[in-house]
Design a protein around this nucleic acid. Sequence first.
DNA 1: TCGGTATCTGAATAGTGTTCAGATTATGGG
DNA 2: CCCATAATCTGAACACTATTCAGATACCGA
Lengths: 208, 208
Amino acid sequence: MSITNVVRRKRVARENYHHGDLEAALIDAAVDLVRQTGPDHLSLRAVAEQVGVSPSAVYHYFPDKDSLISGVGDKLFIDLAHMQREALAQIPGVSARAAKLRYRELGRTYFRWANKEPNLFRLMFGGFCKIEKQGDHQGNDAFLMLTQCLDDLLNTGVISKAMRKYGELLSWTAVQGASTLIVEGHLPEEVFEDLLDGLELAMRAGSK
Amino acid sequence: MSITNVVRRKRVARENYHHGDLEAALIDAAVDLVRQTGPDHLSLRAVAEQVGVSPSAVYHYFPDKDSLISGVGDKLFIDLAHMQREALAQIPGVSARAAKLRYRELGRTYFRWANKEPNLFRLMFGGFCKIEKQGDHQGNDAFLMLTQCLDDLLNTGVISKAMRKYGELLSWTAVQGASTLIVEGHLPEEVFEDLLDGLELAMRAGSK
DNA sequence: TCGGTATCTGAATAGTGTTCAGATTATGGG
DNA sequence: CCCATAATCTGAACACTATTCAGATACCGA
């Protein structure tokens, strides 16, 4: 369906007929509106209007409004992973110092994403998007990056062998929780750096 | 008009009249409906109908639907703190063992609450309720309980002085994040006990 | 008992998600 | 090249929603 759309894209759009890929245009518009209004308060009709299409046209690409929102979530997870990958790429090196910086920057990128766009963060983790594979944290791009960072920390002697086992779990949950609690106003923004300090210290616990 | 007519009207009206506890009745009904439908998909009219009152009656107690939802959130936070207090009360004693059990049970209660009622958890931390005092984690009931637990752990030598400083921050964020990630299907339910193990080990890091 | 006030109703308005018959456009087969 | 067919989108309709407001009702104090 979307493949034929891409192929057809070389033919230029007619006035009333929508060029190539309406599905992506709808998601982009939805991202824009969710950022302003929040995942609740999103209007399917407003999305259609922003793209310049009738409300019923949406139903050729998404069975209902919730599926459209879920599609937005899929895109956002990809965007976040992409942003994290770029952040890591800017800190090369195999030293302990570089490994530490990468680890912290991975968490910061996650948090900055949440803090800059609270409504998009709420869409991702507020039960709006259906996760297909339950508990598929392995194979996840962001999870693999975290694993790599933790391995580097272990190999450079920054963290203990005993804590390495809990590395992904503790880091991911703490950063996720801090993002939520700060975004929702339960904790002040400044504590995030403290949390990174605490995590780094915590990961040295136990026998080497 | 006849006497019987007047009497009947009075009787019917009295049954429909709520006498000031309508506010609480509305919130209770809203809790019930949110549990089933989620914080989005809540219908103000359905809440009113469940209580047996007209939709416009709601507006005498809440300026709009969002405020009603926010009121639900306030109640849920109180309920959660109450549940945690009860959980702690069932584990008395000043030993290291008791302190550990209390610490873990505090986290478990938080997680069980989230896992048993995902939609209520989403309402609490999904941007649906307006937090009045930004970053007012001190003075919070649940926070005080956590502080007490951590002090007990320190005094019984279970955790290090160096990590005590990060105790509330690391514990709260990790448990919060784990609850979210498990509820939303990014992590399997079983890892929560692993997280408690990891937290307990982590809190021993650094100098005593 | 009366008057005022808090409480609730009924109707109306504007906006929502969703469905569906049909109009429009592009594509593939002859 | 043309035409049938499929894909794409529109317009109108339906049931439902939040919200407002004038007015009816029940309660309470004097």
